[in-house]
Design a binder for these strands. Structure first.
Lengths: 212, 212
DNA sequence: ATTTTTCTATACCCATCGATAGAGTTTCCT
DNA sequence: AGGAAACTCTATCGATGGGTATAGAAAAAT
């Protein structure tokens, strides 16, 4: 019996391409085309397809939200993420949510079919190149981000954010209802922890690390 | 006689979708599929297709570079940009380079066909929504950028850049072989011209406007 | 129960920053 | 030739920023 596939992508042309692709494979049958996350979710809930090819970027409810819902509701559909470029964090999140496969749009269609068969048979399919590269980046960025989150106390993080917005010591003190001296102490500690040389470097650092 | 179309996109599935789409239209004939910019360029040079459907994001030589080459060499092929999301500056650049149409991937395939016919007949096709929105943003950003370039003298711009990198007055003075006092004067003038309240605000401003 | 961490505070000192005033040089435009 | 704009300098002064020492109170970890 042919595996029932649902397709979800906001680009009609991609849907056409996918449908055409699987039309040539007798062991797959496309049972639904979805243009946004909401539609995808209702289709998966009602039709219970065997497989879902899911684009991450979609208008409204995005792919990850769909994946999360499927995971949380324990729906039996196996999901393959098909996307142009996968963000590092998105990848990790997707894997955490039990995605069965990750395929880039720039890969050969035949490979996608192969991946689908693999998954239908109970396996997994992660493009090695993508995964390793993404994970490497993730480690770097995550290291920087979480480093800041770990070494800094909540209060210090708060102050870093304010400094990143261009506030003065006096202003920060007023907003936090503490003395200006205390603000200075916090900055002093922050500088030591983050190895930066003043509030300007700190502000730029905060911007880079996405702490603002 | 059917119009000869070349397709350029790094996603094979999209190529499949496009080919399938135009296969149903008797007045169009797909004569080439290209996976990167280099391939696209050689195809356009040799086969001189009537139309080229071009994705902006491609590995290696990207879509804009291809468009630039086609424009510079005076090749007769009319280009339609087909992309997921078009950057403001990219759009302006594309129009400047004589692109004949801009279509988003999320638009209905039938509309793409309609646009192609329009262009083949000598017209243009720009998605109104995209264009107006992009242009509005562009005006804003461009205004901010050029404003800074106009009101600031070359020397002042130099100093703004250095401040944006986190340098101190003393360091800036040393690098420019001027006295620290002069640096202060420049900053004073800059603050007045840009209506900012200190070097931190200035640095953030410079970052936003892309002056660094 | 004791130690550690976190947050808070004050006081002093020096470096840096920013505003202001006054003035000389060059360069470019009219 | 004359004027405007840009760049340079010195000098002063108050405000802000940052280092250091000292230390109390509350919360968390051991």
């Amino acid at each position: 019996m042919a595996a029932r596939i649902a397709l979800a992508d906001d680009h009609p042309i991609v849907l056409d391409g996918l449908e055409q692709l699987f039309h040539l494979e007798p062991d797959f049958e496309v049972v639904a085309r979805c243009r946004d996350g909401k539609e995808t979710l209702s289709v998966v809930r009602e039709q219970r397809p065997d497989l879902l090819i899911l684009d991450i970027r979609m208008p409204g409810t995005d792919g990850l939200a769909v994946l999360r819902a499927i995971h949380d509701e324990g729906l039996p559909t196996r999901v393959v993420v098909l996307t142009a470029a996968l963000d590092d964090e998105q990848l990790v999140e997707a894997v955490r949510l039990g995605v069965r496969g990750v395929v880039l749009k720039e890969t050969a269609p035949k490979l996608l079919v192969k991946a689908m068969r693999e998954i239908q048979a109970g396996g997994q399919w992660l493009e090695p190149g993508v995964v390793s590269r993404a994970l490497r980046k993730l480690v770097q960025k995550d290291a920087g981000f979480r480093e800041a989150e770990k070494v800094l106390t909540p209060r210090e993080l708060e102050i870093v954010r304010m400094a990143g917005s261009g506030l003065r010591n006096r202003q920060i003190a007023d907003r936090l209802f503490i003395s200006e001296g205390t603000v200075k102490i916090h900055f002093h500690n922050i500088y030591q922890k983050l190895q930066v040389n003043g509030r300007l470097e700190l502000a730029l650092y905060a911007r880079d690390k996405g702490l603002v």
